[in-house]
Simulated scan of single mutants.
Amino acid sequence: MRSVELFAGGGGLTLGTHLAGFTTEVVAEWDRWSCDTVRENRDRGYSLVQGVDVHEGDVRDVDWSVIPEGVDLVSGGPPCQPFSAGGKGNAADDNRDMFPATAEVIRQLKPRAFIIENVRGLARAAFSDYYTYIQLRLGHPEITANDGESWGDHYARLQSEHTSVRSDLQYKVIPKLVNAADYGVPQQRWRVFFIGFRSDVDAEWSFPTPTHSAGALRDTQANGEYWERHKVAQKYRDFRVRASADSDVSLKPWRTVRDGLRGLPNPTVYGSTKYLNHVLQPGARSYPGHTGSYIDAPAKALKAGVHGVPGGENMLRDVDGTVRYFTVREAARLQTFPDAYQLHGPWGEAMRQLGNAVPVMLAETVALSVREHLDVAAFNACKAQATARRRVKRDSATA
Rank of each mutant, 00 (worst) to 15 (best):
H290Y: 01
P265L: 00
R237M: 05
Y325I: 07
D339F: 00
A299H: 09
G321Y: 13
G271I: 00
Y325F: 11
R324P: 10
G260W: 02
S272G: 03
P338T: 06
G289K: 01
N314E: 05
D246E: 12
V323R: 11
A245H: 10
A331M: 07
S286M: 12
D259L: 02
V241Y: 08
V279N: 02
L302I: 12
V249L: 01
T291M: 12
D238K: 15
E330H: 07
G271R: 00
G271D: 00
G289W: 01
K303V: 14
L261K: 07
Q281A: 08
A245V: 10
S293D: 07
A299S: 14
D259A: 00
F239P: 14
Y275D: 04
G283E: 06
A332T: 05
E330W: 05
P265F: 00
G321A: 15
G308R: 13
V319Y: 14
T336W: 06
H290T: 01
P288G: 04
L316M: 11
G289C: 01
L334M: 04
Y270K: 13
A332P: 05
A340C: 09
P253R: 00
R333Q: 04
G292L: 05
T268I: 05
P338W: 05
T291V: 13
P282W: 08
G311M: 13
D259W: 00
A243I: 03
T327I: 06
T327C: 05
F326M: 08
A340P: 08
K300Y: 13
E313R: 09
P310H: 15
I295N: 12
V269D: 07
R317N: 14
T273R: 09
Y341D: 05
Y275N: 03
V309N: 14
Q281I: 06
D246M: 10
A299N: 09
A301M: 14
D248M: 01
G283S: 06
R242Y: 15
K303C: 15
K274L: 11
N314I: 05
R333H: 04
G312S: 11
A301E: 14
D246A: 12
F337H: 07
T327R: 05
V241M: 09
